[in-house]
């Protein structure tokens, strides 16, 4: 390393400095999601897993199953599981990697930083899901061509939109867990508990206990979002989604945001 003698920029005196616009915070936070090694490989893994699952479907699925919904599900499921990890790491890195010491010094209103991260996470989910749909469409065309059948398009636009909403909600769950836990390892563990352990427990409990089986749609967020993946959502299911979402997403997120704004950054 060489020591360079160089003129230091002159210290600023009085000058008008505009405040940092929200859009700039959001786009910078989006960049931060993708410019680290972990961010890069998380995104790359989505592409790799999408290609792999498309290949597996073409190789192993029955001819009758070579429909657009099969391909969309094969790509959408791994994507919906991995995308929230980007949201988690985007929040927790500020604490686990301690970069918050710089971030919150540059943007001292932490609510604005967190809002920027939320906007960036939503943008990734909203843009990412149609990309998965597009890859699925290519897989469907390719699979049909290889199998020598005409492609079957069995997903409606409404259904695509409810799947997209499910992915956005999944992204928000990751974001919420990041905000609440504020540590990468802890938040990832919490995510897997939330995403895999709790739904399984709900399933077992509903199978064994009749009273819970009736109650489940009203208290189980994963159960309620399942309706979005099925396609046709009734008014009652929308209500169940709203109630479970309030319990499992909105309330913890509100608590977490309050903690983030007040917590000491070390």
């Amino acid at each position: 390393m060489t020591v360079v003698q160089h003129r230091v920029p002159s210290p600023a005196t009085d000058r008008m400095i505009p405040s940092i616009p929200m859009g700039r915070i959001a786009t910078t936070e989006l960049r931060k999601m993708l410019d680290t090694r972990s961010g890069f490989w998380t995104m790359a893994s989505i592409a790799l897993v999408s290609l792999a699952t498309t290949g597996l479907v073409i190789l192993f699925a029955d001819r009758g199953d070579l429909t657009y919904s099969t391909f969309a599900a094969a790509i959408g499921v791994p994507m919906s599981l991995i995308l929230p990890i980007i949201a988690i790491l985007s929040v927790t890195a500020e604490w686990s990697q301690r970069s918050g010491l710089t971030t919150f010094a540059l943007v001292p209103h932490r609510g604005r930083v967190i809002t920027g991260k939320l906007m960036a996470a939503l943008a990734v989910a909203i843009v990412g899901t149609p990309v998965a749909f597009a890859i699925g469409a290519l897989g469907n065309l390719g699979g049909a061509a290889i199998a020598g059948v005409s492609p079957v398009w069995d997903l409606t636009l409404t259904h695509l939109l409810t799947i997209e909403l499910a992915n956005v909600l999944g992204m928000l769950v990751g974001f919420m867990l990041g905000v609440v836990v504020r540590g990468s390892a802890g938040a990832l563990v919490a995510y897997f508990i939330y995403q895999f352990l709790l739904p399984t427990l709900g399933l077992i409990l509903a199978a064994k206990q009749a009273w819970f089986s009736d109650l489940q749609p009203w208290v189980d967020f994963d159960f309620a979002t399942g309706a979005l993946l099925e396609g046709s959502v009734t008014a009652q299911q929308w209500l169940q989604l709203a109630i479970t979402g309030l319990i499992w997403l909105v309330v913890p997120l509100a608590v977490g945001l309050r903690l983030v704004v007040r917590a000491e950054v070390k």
Partner: peptide, 15 residues
């Protein structure tokens, strides 16, 4: 307006 350096190690290691 203010240049701040509180802990040089507090940077994202993967960036």
């Amino acid at each position: 307006e203010v240049g701040v350096l509180l802990d040089a190690s507090a940077q994202h290691a993967g960036r």
